[in-house]
């Protein structure tokens, strides 16, 4: 009885809030939490496109349907999928993970560094400020697959602008996608170009929230520009920075279209990152559902561990987040 009353009271107090979030919660439950649970369950099976049916039904001559058990139906395989992936029997998990780490670290570092630099430059009063801002944010408005295509076009070995320019200056053209590192370089460059605007805009917003009298009093106290940057700007940006670095890391880690379309894994799959490698391993040929899910769970686990670790570091530095 008391629980009923407590529930009632809770309902009376919170029903507006719940009413406002319930559609989103429902959609997420149906389309994310259920698929997640389903996906985790799949990792312990060997389900593929070919063996997913428990029964094979055939139409008989009389018009009825005859169903018999599928002799090659899927079954539980325990941790086989994980073992196969982690020992490298299927795919190149460790190489892909290494590439992913390089890809993510380089991407986020340059996104943040360049974004911060440009935000600081553009934050001050000057002529053409609005114009610069629009131009610098423009890459954000271009859909990722179009950017991927544009950069692939620029670095095309035969007709790309970059090689034409190299030619014109008397250098040899470079077969960009024939070497692992130059191929990865092009992909990282594309991704940097794509991601700087978001960082710049977010950090610009952060800069505007730092009270300007802090700078004035620091100037009166004789602080150098570098000291002001170091002791006012950076600490003032911490709340924004911690959020956008975490989001940026997650987004870059799972960034599918750039590698998939720009390098296509060339040469010989050496530039695959985890998400693209997993996609090719699981979906080319017969679609292997259980393998795809296993990769998904591994990727999710890496990101979860990272974000728990990240939050712990932040908290140790006194961040309440």
């Amino acid at each position: 009885m008391t629980t009923v009353i407590a529930l009632r009271r809770s309902w009376d107090k919170h029903w507006t809030a719940w009413a406002m979030v319930v559609p989103v919660v429902l959609i997420l439950a149906v389309l994310i939490l259920y698929p997640l649970a389903n996906g985790i369950w799949l990792t312990f099976t060997n389900q593929t496109e070919a063996n997913q049916l428990a029964e094979i039904c055939t139409k008989s001559i009389t018009g009825g349907e005859v169903c018999r058990e599928n002799p090659n139906a899927w079954s539980y395989v325990g941790f086989d999928n994980y073992v196969n992936i982690l020992t490298g029997r299927i795919g190149e998990f460790w190489q892909w993970t290494g590439t992913t780490v390089i890809w993510t670290a380089a991407g986020v570092a340059f996104h943040y560094g360049l974004g911060l630099g440009l935000a600081v430059l553009i934050h001050r009063e000057m002529r053409f400020r609005g114009l610069y801002r629009v131009l610098l944010v423009l890459p954000w408005a271009v859909p990722a697959f179009i950017s991927a295509f544009a950069w692939k076009f620029l670095f095309n070995e035969r007709l790309g602008l970059v090689n034409s320019v190299l030619d014109a200056f008397g250098f040899d053209s470079v077969a960009w996608f024939a070497d692992r590192w130059s191929s990865l370089f092009v992909a990282v460059l594309t991704n940097i170009w794509l991601g700087v605007p978001f960082m710049m805009v977010a950090l610009l917003g952060g800069l505007q929230s730092i009270p300007s009298d802090l700078y004035e009093s620091a100037e009166i106290d004789g602080a150098s520009p570098w000291q002001r940057f170091r002791h006012i700007t950076l600490p003032g940006l911490r709340p924004v920075s911690s959020t956008v670095i975490l989001l940026g890391t997650i987004w870059t880690f799972n960034m599918f279209p750039i590698i998939f379309l720009v390098t296509e894994g060339q040469p010989a799959g050496q530039t695959e990152i985890l998400v693209t490698g997993a996609f090719r391993a699981a979906f080319e040929g017969i679609r292997n559902y259980s393998l795809a899910s296993t990769y998904g769970v591994l990727i999710l686990s890496i990101l979860l561990v990272f974000s728990v670790f990240y939050r712990r570091v932040l908290r140790r530095q006194g961040e309440v987040w």
Partner: peptide, 16 residues
């Protein structure tokens, strides 16, 4: 939800 790679969701969502 930001961490979910498409590859894990795509098959279950397809069946839904």
């Amino acid at each position: 939800t930001q961490m979910f790679p498409v590859s894990i969701l795509i098959v279950p969502i397809y069946s839904i």
